[in-house]
Amino acid sequence: MTPIIMVKNLVKKYQKAKTNAVDDITFHVNEGAFFAFLGPNGAGKTTTISILTTTLSKTSGEITIAGYDLEKEHSHVRRNIGVIFQNPSLDRNLTAEENIRFHAILYGLFPFRPTFALMPEAYKKRVKELSKILGLDEDIFQSVKTYSGGMKRKLEIVRSLMHKPKVLFLDEPTVGLDPLSRKNLWEYLNFVRKNENTTIFLTTHYLDEAEDADHICIINHGKIITSGTPEKIKSDLIDEYLLTDASNRDNLIAELKAKHIPFKLDEHIKIDLKKRRIQHLLKSIDTELSFVQIHRPTLEDAYLEIIDHDNE
């Protein structure tokens, strides 16, 4: 697979800021991938996405998107991306359809016409199709003022997909949405991804949203802490171990030493489970055990642990 986004040594220092908001990060995103940029508030996610979407200038570094240099070929980059911003960016004084029409004309997809009825058939068909998929139907001619948070998000997605972007950037798209709207949104995004092979670049601080990604990048204080597939991150981050004890603890310790099983003694005896299977381990111990507990954190726990650790 060819990378569609390449970022090399990106640095952003805001004017009057003492530290770098984004501090020398390098990563790439493959075409058609679902890429998640994960980190707590203030980690540098929005800064990075603003630079990638051409609304903020970088301090240094090299970026190409869809083969175009971000600095020199702005308008080519813009034509190939769609953006869902953190805060809804709809014009509330227009109807939903007018918002879509505005976008379509600015992107040069259709010539200007003052009403929906006068627009080309291809446009009408597309708008009707998309609004049907999203269940907006007749609401598409209503003022955006009457829309709920979830409907606004859907409308923004419809709008951002009008020009068939190669990459869709989503900056914390589900903030402020109820669980059902979140679920619907994800179903639709997955549908789009499969149908159009659109690359999705997501920033989020919800780990469960990132778990379905092909590739996760965890960022904090402007630096990438770790990156890889969810499985890799899981195995890198998750510290799996067995806590055990015996009424005759000395006996157990002697046995473990004799059998070359490494352990740590805290409140209980702690045995690392990364390189051994639990059943084998338990089978090999003859001393009668009085306490057995397996520590197997979820990805969420692991994420919180590293963010916490990094903040210290």
Binding site: T55, S75, I81
Partner: peptide
């Protein structure tokens, strides 16, 4: 005002001059 409602962003990421 658009900028604070974030509509400016929609205009400024579009590929027009």
């Amino acid at each position: 005002e658009d900028r604070e409602n974030n509509f400016t962003q929609e205009i400024f990421v579009s590929p027009v001059s």
